[in-house]
Design a protein around this nucleic acid. Structure first.
Length: 424
RNA sequence: GGAGGGAUGGCAGAGCGGUUGAAUGCACCGGUCUUGAAAACCGGCGGGGCGCAAGUCCUCAGGGGUUCGAAUCCCCUUCCCUCCGCCA
């Protein structure tokens, strides 16, 4: 959600911002509806005020023992009440219409977001390391996993269906090692506060982070009003929903491991081979709440914090600044981290680090106060993956596999895996 | 799952049909006093919408109802606590 005041006062600014994302926002309709809403709402409130005044006077008259006058006052509210109950649904409806339109008004891109029309206009801002040069034909992760016995995809589909993974033996150990390592890394090296959240949340939380109402079809619904989380972003961000924080507590930086559940309804047939795109995966998520003036600095460190995991593991990647149309609806600025897959000979998105500014906080009602008595302001909310394991797992296999030997485990990971070499 | 009890401002805690958006205490902010501090005293102090403002509307877990009028009465939902059962 954007600030209504902003749309009212700077409709062109909002329209242009949306256009940068190649979204045509219904600004004119919104302005007209808002105008109508304000007029009608003012009318409604005047009538309510009148009604309240009369009710109050009834009380006073009763106290003075003027019973007949009280009766007269009572009956005088009748017409007023009818007008009020006639007006109320109209006002409510207009408000609902406004909200509906606001669902198609995206967050505005930051001025530093590049113009563009598709992914070719994303800007590579830096890269680290270089593509692994292997003295043999790189093997895709599913081959490596098969040879050593790290995954059991066919049994996974037997017990759960396609798009699920069973990690076995060293594969399971490696998987567990990865997210343990990443959480420890973010806590110890980058100062995040560890959170272990519930995997099931209510609809209010999903509305707070914007998965509802728009993306319901991608969520697993457990029962009425309860859903599996598609990312730890949901429970972690919503920790502070409907709260007013003290500015001294900001920034709040949280790191959470969780399993993530996604139907991937629209992605059938895409990236089906191996474990690139699955219904249940594991991820360490980083979430920050901070003041508006610091959020772009926090975004930069969020990206470098996520990058530091790959650097520690010695994996080549690049950082890409997304152009307008590539960004998600609620982003103001977004960097993707793309990891190099030796077997596929291409970069895979492994992290997406976003500044939502106040867009999400407005939905989730997360505020802070600068000092005693000051007006609460919306916090800025950021998040990024740090990182998702399936692709990390895959690239790790492809990068560190040596034919006839096994998978060499990078030094920082060895104590977590319990070996320096995974063999059959 | 069964039986009770509860939900009020940052916290504690009154209020149980009328002028109460809410007593009182604590916390917090400003001031007086003081060399400084504490204490004492005076003043302020929930959130949101609309409005240039005056002001006005909404908000006492959430939703519905009764009433001229609801924090107060009725119904539903949610959450918390205690006890019983079941179970990691």
């Amino acid at each position: 959600m954007l600030d209504r005041q902003l749309i009212r006062e700077n409709p062109e600014f909002v329209r242009q911002g949306a256009l940068k994302k190649r979204i045509t926002a219904p600004i004119d309709e919104w302005i007209a509806t808002d105008q109508e809403w304000r007029t009608l709402n003012a009318e409604l409130e005047n009538k309510k005020a009148e009604s309240n005044r009369i009710s109050k006077s009834v009380g006073e008259l009763m106290a003075q023992g003027k019973r007949e006058e009280a009766e007269v006052a009572k009956s005088s509210t009748k017409a007023l009440k009818e007008e009020i109950s006639g007006l109320e649904p109209k006002v409510r409806e207009l408000d609902a219409t406004l909200e509906q339109m606001e669902l198609s008004i995206p967050n505005l891109p930051h001025e530093t977001v590049p113009e563009g029309k598709d992914e070719h206009d994303n800007v590579v801002v830096r890269s680290w390391g270089s593509p692994a040069t292997l003295p043999f034909e790189p093997r895709p992760h599913w081959d490596v996993a098969d040879e050593i016995g790290l995954l059991d995809l066919s049994r996974a589909s037997k017990i759960s269906g396609s798009g699920f993974v069973v990690y076995t033996g060293w594969g399971a150990k490696l998987q567990r090692a990865l997210f343990n390592f990443m959480v420890d890394h973010q806590v110890a090296k980058n100062g995040y506060h560890e959170i272990f959240p519930p995997y099931i949340v209510n609809s209010a939380s999903l509305r707070g982070t914007g998965q509802l109402p728009k993306f319901e079809e991608d969520l697993y619904k457990v029962e009425e009003d309860l859903y599996l989380i598609p990312t730890a972003e949901v429970p972690v961000t919503n920790l502070y929903r409907d709260e007013i924080l003290d500015v001294a507590d900001l920034p709040i930086r949280m790191a959470a491991y969780s399993a993530c559940f996604r139907k991937e309804a629209g992605a059938a047939g895409k990236d089906t081979r191996g474990i690139q795109r699955v219904h249940q995966f594991d991820k360490v998520e980083l979430v920050k709440l901070c003041t508006p003036e610091s959020s772009y600095d926090e975004l930069e460190t969020l990206v470098t914090d996520a990058e530091s995991v790959l650097q520690t593991l010695g994996l080549h990647y690049r950082v890409v600044l997304l152009c307008g149309p590539e960004m998600s609806f609620s982003n103001a600025k977004c960097y993707d981290i793309e990891i190099w897959s030796p077997a596929m000979q291409k970069y895979l998105e492994i992290s997406s680090c976003s500044n939502f500014e106040a867009f999400q906080a407005r939905r989730a009602n997360i505020r802070f106060r600068r000092e005693q008595g000051a007006k609460p302001e919306f916090a800025h909310v950021l998040n990024g993956s740090g990182l998702a394991t399936p692709r990390l797992f895959a690239v790790l296999l492809e990068t560190f596999y040596e034919p006839g030997i096994g998978i060499r485990i990078p030094e920082p990971l060895q104590s977590y895996v319990g070996t320096d070499l995974i063999t059959k």
